Simulated scan of single mutants.
Amino acid sequence: MTWLNETIKAQRAMLAARLESPMSGLTERCAMSWRDRDRLDEILRAALADMPGCQLIYAIDTNGRQVSANVGRDAIDRGKYGQNLARRPYLSNAIPYKGFLLSDVYLSPPDRRSCVTAV
């Protein structure tokens, strides 16, 4: 493996380690308020505070439909409820039953910035 591949692998491992604690249990907290959009958004906002490198968080159902707002550091965008994200690159892989996965780097459709998504 080249030094670049090793560097990327190490950075992904570091990111996964930083997200492991705040992501653990988040699914259970979200599931308890799944039908209460306002409460779900607040749970996500609280989780975002524990993820310093994360810029945006939202919940999607098993069909790829967004069931929460886009919760960002400075705002909650409730206009994103119901959008279909099923074709996003981070949903093209199998979703883990437990834990989470990090997507490959991709360009975010809205602003064309490179990003990684934790699912």
Rank of each mutant, 00 (worst) to 15 (best):
Y90D: 03
G64E: 10
V67M: 02
T117Q: 06
L107H: 15
V105S: 02
E6Y: 00
A46T: 12
S92A: 15
S68Y: 01
M51Q: 12
D36I: 06
L91Q: 01
M23P: 01
N63Q: 10
V71C: 02
S24D: 13
V71E: 04
R12K: 07
G72C: 05
L44H: 08
I76K: 08
L26R: 04
Y90Q: 05
D41I: 05
D77E: 06
P110I: 02
A16V: 04
S108N: 15
A86E: 07
A46Y: 04
N93P: 14
A10T: 09
D50A: 12
S68L: 07
G53F: 13
Y90E: 13
A86P: 00
E20H: 13
Q83M: 13
R18I: 02
M32D: 15
I60A: 10
S68E: 05
P52T: 07
Q83Y: 15
G82T: 00
A118M: 00
R18E: 15
I57L: 08
D38N: 13
C30T: 03
Q66R: 14
R65D: 11
L91F: 10
Q55E: 14
Y58G: 01
V119K: 09
I43M: 09
L48T: 04
D36R: 15
D111K: 01
A86H: 05
V116C: 07
R78T: 15
C54S: 13
A118W: 04
I57G: 09
A49F: 14
P110Y: 01
L48E: 06
K9D: 12
R65T: 12
L56H: 05
D111C: 00
L4P: 01
T7P: 00
L4K: 08
P110Q: 12
Y90A: 08
C54N: 04
M1I: 02
A10R: 08
A17R: 09
A75M: 10
T117V: 14
D61F: 02
L44E: 05
S21L: 12
R39E: 15
D77Q: 05
D74A: 12
D50S: 14
Y90G: 08
D41K: 10
A13R: 09
M32V: 15
V67K: 03
